[in-house]
Computed example of a mutant assay.
Amino acid sequence: MDLYAEMAALVSEGRPFVLATVIESAGSTPQKPGSKLVVLEDGSLRGTVGGGAIEHQIIQAAQALLASPEHTRIIETHLTHELGMCCGGRMKVFLEKHGAPPRLTVFGAGHVALELASLAHRVGFRVTVVDARPEWANPERFPDCELLVKDPADHARALPGGPEHYFCVTTHDHPLDQAVVEALLDKSSAYLGVIGSRRKAERFRMRLRAAGFTEPAVERLRSPMGVDIGALTPQEIAVSIVGELIQVRRQPPSPPGRGAG
Protein backbone atom coordinates (compact mmCIF):
# COMPACT_ATOMS: atom_id res chain seq x y z
CA MET A 1 0.00 0.00 0.00
CA ASP A 2 1.48 3.40 -0.96
CA LEU A 3 1.70 6.27 1.51
CA TYR A 4 -1.29 8.17 0.15
CA ALA A 5 -3.48 5.06 0.37
CA GLU A 6 -2.31 4.56 3.97
CA MET A 7 -3.20 8.18 4.81
CA ALA A 8 -6.64 7.70 3.27
CA ALA A 9 -7.11 4.59 5.41
CA LEU A 10 -6.11 6.50 8.56
CA VAL A 11 -8.62 9.25 7.75
CA SER A 12 -11.32 6.63 7.16
CA GLU A 13 -10.52 5.03 10.53
CA GLY A 14 -10.65 8.40 12.28
CA ARG A 15 -7.00 8.26 13.44
CA PRO A 16 -5.21 11.64 13.67
CA PHE A 17 -1.69 11.93 12.29
CA VAL A 18 0.97 14.40 11.18
CA LEU A 19 2.38 14.43 7.66
CA ALA A 20 6.02 15.59 7.60
CA THR A 21 7.36 16.65 4.19
CA VAL A 22 10.92 17.69 3.36
CA ILE A 23 10.49 21.01 1.56
CA GLU A 24 14.13 22.19 1.31
CA SER A 25 17.57 20.61 1.62
CA ALA A 26 21.12 21.85 1.14
CA GLY A 27 24.36 19.93 1.18
CA SER A 28 24.48 16.29 2.12
CA THR A 29 21.16 15.09 3.61
CA PRO A 30 19.60 11.63 4.01
CA GLN A 31 16.48 12.62 2.07
CA LYS A 32 15.64 15.27 -0.53
CA PRO A 33 12.58 17.54 -0.98
CA GLY A 34 9.36 15.60 -1.41
CA SER A 35 10.25 12.83 1.04
CA LYS A 36 7.40 12.18 3.46
CA LEU A 37 6.82 10.66 6.87
CA VAL A 38 3.50 10.02 8.63
CA VAL A 39 3.56 10.07 12.44
CA LEU A 40 0.66 8.73 14.52
CA GLU A 41 -0.22 9.54 18.14
CA ASP A 42 1.26 6.25 19.37
CA GLY A 43 4.57 6.97 17.63
CA SER A 44 4.07 4.47 14.80
CA LEU A 45 5.35 5.59 11.41
CA ARG A 46 4.63 5.37 7.71
CA GLY A 47 7.37 6.40 5.25
CA THR A 48 10.66 8.09 6.17
CA VAL A 49 12.55 11.36 6.05
CA GLY A 50 15.95 9.76 6.52
CA GLY A 51 16.14 8.00 9.86
CA GLY A 52 18.60 8.76 12.63
CA ALA A 53 18.61 11.92 14.72
CA ILE A 54 16.75 14.07 12.20
CA GLU A 55 13.86 11.62 12.01
CA HIS A 56 13.77 11.34 15.81
CA GLN A 57 13.57 15.15 16.05
CA ILE A 58 10.71 15.24 13.53
CA ILE A 59 8.79 12.48 15.33
CA GLN A 60 9.02 14.39 18.62
CA ALA A 61 7.91 17.62 16.92
CA ALA A 62 5.01 15.81 15.21
CA GLN A 63 3.76 14.32 18.47
CA ALA A 64 3.97 17.74 20.12
CA LEU A 65 1.95 19.19 17.23
CA LEU A 66 -0.74 16.51 17.68
CA ALA A 67 -1.12 17.59 21.31
CA SER A 68 -1.25 21.32 20.51
CA PRO A 69 -3.96 23.58 19.02
CA GLU A 70 -1.66 24.40 16.09
CA HIS A 71 -2.17 22.78 12.70
CA THR A 72 1.20 23.33 11.01
CA ARG A 73 4.82 23.84 11.95
CA ILE A 74 8.15 24.17 10.11
CA ILE A 75 11.41 22.70 11.39
CA GLU A 76 14.76 23.82 9.97
CA THR A 77 17.83 21.95 11.17
CA HIS A 78 21.55 21.85 10.45
CA LEU A 79 22.27 18.14 10.71
CA THR A 80 25.87 18.46 11.95
CA HIS A 81 25.78 21.59 14.11
CA GLU A 82 22.47 20.82 15.83
CA LEU A 83 22.16 17.03 15.72
CA GLY A 84 25.74 15.80 15.43
CA MET A 85 25.05 13.90 12.21
CA CYS A 86 27.90 13.43 9.78
CA CYS A 87 25.90 14.45 6.71
CA GLY A 88 26.73 18.14 7.07
CA GLY A 89 23.66 19.49 5.27
CA ARG A 90 20.47 21.34 6.23
CA MET A 91 16.85 20.24 6.00
CA LYS A 92 13.60 22.14 6.25
CA VAL A 93 10.53 20.05 7.03
CA PHE A 94 6.87 21.07 6.94
CA LEU A 95 4.58 19.41 9.50
CA GLU A 96 0.84 19.31 8.84
CA LYS A 97 -1.67 17.88 11.31
CA HIS A 98 -4.59 15.82 10.04
CA GLY A 99 -7.18 15.47 12.76
CA ALA A 100 -9.79 12.79 13.17
CA PRO A 101 -13.12 13.69 11.53
CA PRO A 102 -15.73 15.06 13.93
CA ARG A 103 -18.09 12.39 15.24
CA LEU A 104 -21.83 13.01 15.08
CA THR A 105 -24.16 10.74 17.02
CA VAL A 106 -27.80 11.03 16.01
CA PHE A 107 -30.20 9.63 18.61
CA GLY A 108 -33.29 8.45 16.76
CA ALA A 109 -33.74 7.19 13.20
CA GLY A 110 -36.86 9.02 12.07
CA HIS A 111 -37.50 11.24 9.06
CA VAL A 112 -35.39 14.20 10.20
CA ALA A 113 -32.59 11.89 11.36
CA LEU A 114 -32.52 10.27 7.92
CA GLU A 115 -31.90 13.59 6.17
CA LEU A 116 -29.60 14.87 8.92
CA ALA A 117 -27.33 11.81 8.87
CA SER A 118 -27.03 11.83 5.08
CA LEU A 119 -26.18 15.51 4.81
CA ALA A 120 -23.78 15.46 7.79
CA HIS A 121 -21.90 12.55 6.22
CA ARG A 122 -21.56 14.50 2.97
CA VAL A 123 -19.95 17.48 4.73
CA GLY A 124 -17.37 15.40 6.58
CA PHE A 125 -18.89 14.08 9.80
CA ARG A 126 -18.46 10.48 10.88
CA VAL A 127 -22.07 9.63 11.69
CA THR A 128 -23.54 7.07 14.09
CA VAL A 129 -27.30 6.58 14.31
CA VAL A 130 -28.80 5.01 17.44
CA ASP A 131 -32.34 3.68 17.65
CA ALA A 132 -33.87 0.59 19.27
CA ARG A 133 -36.24 0.03 16.33
CA PRO A 134 -34.62 -2.14 13.63
CA GLU A 135 -37.33 -1.26 11.13
CA TRP A 136 -36.08 2.33 11.29
CA ALA A 137 -32.37 1.85 11.98
CA ASN A 138 -31.32 -0.33 9.06
CA PRO A 139 -28.63 -0.15 6.35
CA GLU A 140 -31.14 0.44 3.58
CA ARG A 141 -32.15 3.75 5.16
CA PHE A 142 -28.67 4.71 6.42
CA PRO A 143 -26.11 3.27 3.97
CA ASP A 144 -23.29 5.68 4.94
CA CYS A 145 -23.59 5.51 8.73
CA GLU A 146 -22.68 3.30 11.62
CA LEU A 147 -25.92 1.88 13.03
CA LEU A 148 -26.55 0.83 16.62
CA VAL A 149 -29.86 -0.92 17.28
CA LYS A 150 -30.08 -0.25 21.00
CA ASP A 151 -31.77 2.01 23.49
CA PRO A 152 -30.58 5.59 22.83
CA ALA A 153 -30.51 6.52 26.53
CA ASP A 154 -28.40 3.48 27.40
CA HIS A 155 -25.94 4.37 24.65
CA ALA A 156 -25.82 8.00 25.77
CA ARG A 157 -24.91 6.90 29.31
CA ALA A 158 -22.07 4.73 28.00
CA LEU A 159 -20.52 7.35 25.73
CA PRO A 160 -17.28 8.95 26.98
CA GLY A 161 -17.81 12.26 25.18
CA GLY A 162 -14.99 14.52 24.07
CA PRO A 163 -14.35 17.77 22.19
CA GLU A 164 -14.70 16.04 18.80
CA HIS A 165 -18.19 14.71 19.61
CA TYR A 166 -21.44 16.24 18.34
CA PHE A 167 -24.78 15.00 19.67
CA CYS A 168 -28.18 15.51 18.02
CA VAL A 169 -31.23 14.17 19.86
CA THR A 170 -34.14 13.41 17.51
CA THR A 171 -35.96 10.40 19.00
CA HIS A 172 -39.65 9.60 18.52
CA ASP A 173 -40.50 10.12 22.20
CA HIS A 174 -40.19 13.24 24.40
CA PRO A 175 -39.37 11.34 27.63
CA LEU A 176 -36.67 9.45 25.72
CA ASP A 177 -35.28 12.75 24.41
CA GLN A 178 -35.16 13.95 28.02
CA ALA A 179 -33.36 10.81 29.23
CA VAL A 180 -30.77 11.10 26.45
CA VAL A 181 -30.15 14.78 27.16
CA GLU A 182 -29.74 14.17 30.89
CA ALA A 183 -27.23 11.41 30.13
CA LEU A 184 -25.21 13.69 27.83
CA LEU A 185 -25.36 17.07 29.51
CA ASP A 186 -22.53 16.39 31.95
CA LYS A 187 -20.22 15.03 29.22
CA SER A 188 -17.74 17.04 27.21
CA SER A 189 -18.88 17.72 23.65
CA ALA A 190 -18.62 20.28 20.88
CA TYR A 191 -22.38 20.34 20.38
CA LEU A 192 -25.50 19.04 22.11
CA GLY A 193 -28.88 19.76 20.57
CA VAL A 194 -32.42 18.42 20.78
CA ILE A 195 -35.11 18.79 18.17
CA GLY A 196 -38.40 20.46 19.00
CA SER A 197 -40.35 23.67 19.36
CA ARG A 198 -39.45 26.59 21.60
CA ARG A 199 -42.17 25.46 24.00
CA LYS A 200 -40.63 21.99 24.22
CA ALA A 201 -37.20 23.56 24.72
CA GLU A 202 -38.39 25.63 27.68
CA ARG A 203 -39.98 22.58 29.28
CA PHE A 204 -36.73 20.68 28.82
CA ARG A 205 -34.77 23.42 30.53
CA MET A 206 -37.23 23.58 33.41
CA ARG A 207 -36.93 19.81 33.96
CA LEU A 208 -33.14 19.96 33.78
CA ARG A 209 -33.01 22.69 36.41
CA ALA A 210 -35.40 20.69 38.58
CA ALA A 211 -33.09 17.68 38.20
CA GLY A 212 -30.22 19.70 39.66
CA PHE A 213 -28.26 20.71 36.56
CA THR A 214 -26.53 24.06 36.86
CA GLU A 215 -27.50 27.02 34.69
CA PRO A 216 -24.24 26.89 32.65
CA ALA A 217 -24.93 23.22 31.92
CA VAL A 218 -28.54 23.93 30.91
CA GLU A 219 -27.40 26.74 28.63
CA ARG A 220 -25.17 24.31 26.73
CA LEU A 221 -28.27 22.68 25.29
CA ARG A 222 -29.16 23.97 21.82
CA SER A 223 -32.90 23.75 21.46
CA PRO A 224 -34.57 24.32 19.13
CA MET A 225 -31.42 23.17 17.35
CA GLY A 226 -30.41 24.47 13.96
CA VAL A 227 -30.00 27.83 12.26
CA ASP A 228 -33.26 29.77 12.13
CA ILE A 229 -34.16 29.64 8.43
CA GLY A 230 -37.87 28.98 8.82
CA ALA A 231 -37.37 25.28 8.05
CA LEU A 232 -40.50 23.11 7.79
CA THR A 233 -39.73 19.87 5.94
CA PRO A 234 -37.33 17.17 7.20
CA GLN A 235 -34.90 18.14 4.45
CA GLU A 236 -35.02 21.83 5.40
CA ILE A 237 -34.67 21.03 9.10
CA ALA A 238 -31.62 18.89 8.31
CA VAL A 239 -30.07 21.80 6.39
CA SER A 240 -30.63 24.13 9.35
CA ILE A 241 -29.09 21.66 11.83
CA VAL A 242 -26.08 20.83 9.66
CA GLY A 243 -25.55 24.54 9.10
CA GLU A 244 -25.27 24.98 12.86
CA LEU A 245 -22.94 21.96 13.16
CA ILE A 246 -20.65 23.49 10.53
CA GLN A 247 -20.78 26.85 12.31
CA VAL A 248 -19.64 25.21 15.55
CA ARG A 249 -17.00 23.09 13.80
CA ARG A 250 -15.38 26.15 12.24
CA GLN A 251 -15.14 28.00 15.56
CA PRO A 252 -12.67 27.37 18.40
CA PRO A 253 -14.07 24.78 20.87
CA SER A 254 -15.70 26.11 24.03
CA PRO A 255 -14.87 24.77 27.50
CA PRO A 256 -16.89 21.70 28.49
CA GLY A 257 -19.91 22.35 30.70
CA ARG A 258 -20.67 20.62 33.94
CA GLY A 259 -23.89 19.20 35.28
CA ALA A 260 -25.29 18.83 38.75
CA GLY A 261 -22.82 19.14 41.53
Rank of each mutant, 00 (worst) to 15 (best):
residue 66 L to D: 12
residue 67 A to F: 11
residue 68 S to K: 10
residue 71 H to V: 10
residue 72 T to R: 15
residue 74 I to G: 12
residue 76 E to C: 11
residue 79 L to K: 05
residue 82 E to R: 11
residue 82 E to N: 14
residue 84 G to W: 05
residue 85 M to E: 15
residue 88 G to E: 09
residue 89 G to V: 11
residue 90 R to V: 12
residue 93 V to H: 00
residue 93 V to Y: 00
residue 93 V to A: 06
residue 95 L to V: 08
residue 97 K to Q: 14
residue 98 H to D: 07
residue 98 H to M: 13
residue 99 G to S: 15
residue 102 P to F: 06
residue 104 L to F: 04
residue 107 F to Q: 02
residue 110 G to H: 04
residue 111 H to N: 04
residue 113 A to M: 08
residue 114 L to A: 06
residue 115 E to F: 07
residue 116 L to Y: 02
residue 116 L to C: 01
residue 117 A to M: 00
residue 122 R to N: 07
residue 125 F to N: 00
residue 126 R to Y: 00
residue 127 V to F: 00
residue 127 V to S: 00
residue 128 T to I: 14
residue 128 T to F: 14
residue 129 V to R: 01
residue 129 V to N: 02
residue 130 V to E: 01
residue 135 E to W: 08
residue 135 E to M: 06
residue 136 W to V: 01
residue 137 A to M: 03
residue 138 N to V: 04
residue 139 P to G: 04
residue 142 F to E: 01
residue 142 F to C: 02
residue 142 F to D: 02
residue 143 P to Q: 04
residue 143 P to E: 03
residue 145 C to P: 03
residue 147 L to F: 11
residue 147 L to V: 11
residue 148 L to G: 07
residue 149 V to R: 04
residue 150 K to S: 14
residue 151 D to V: 09
residue 151 D to H: 12
residue 152 P to I: 03
residue 157 R to D: 01
residue 158 A to P: 01
residue 158 A to Y: 04
residue 159 L to P: 02
residue 160 P to M: 09
residue 163 P to Y: 09
residue 164 E to V: 09
residue 164 E to D: 14
residue 169 V to K: 00
residue 170 T to G: 10
residue 174 H to Q: 15
residue 177 D to W: 03
residue 180 V to I: 12
residue 181 V to H: 05
residue 186 D to T: 05
residue 188 S to E: 14
residue 191 Y to K: 10
residue 191 Y to W: 12
residue 192 L to W: 01
residue 193 G to M: 10
residue 197 S to Y: 05
residue 198 R to K: 13
residue 198 R to Q: 14
residue 202 E to P: 06
residue 205 R to C: 08
residue 208 L to H: 01
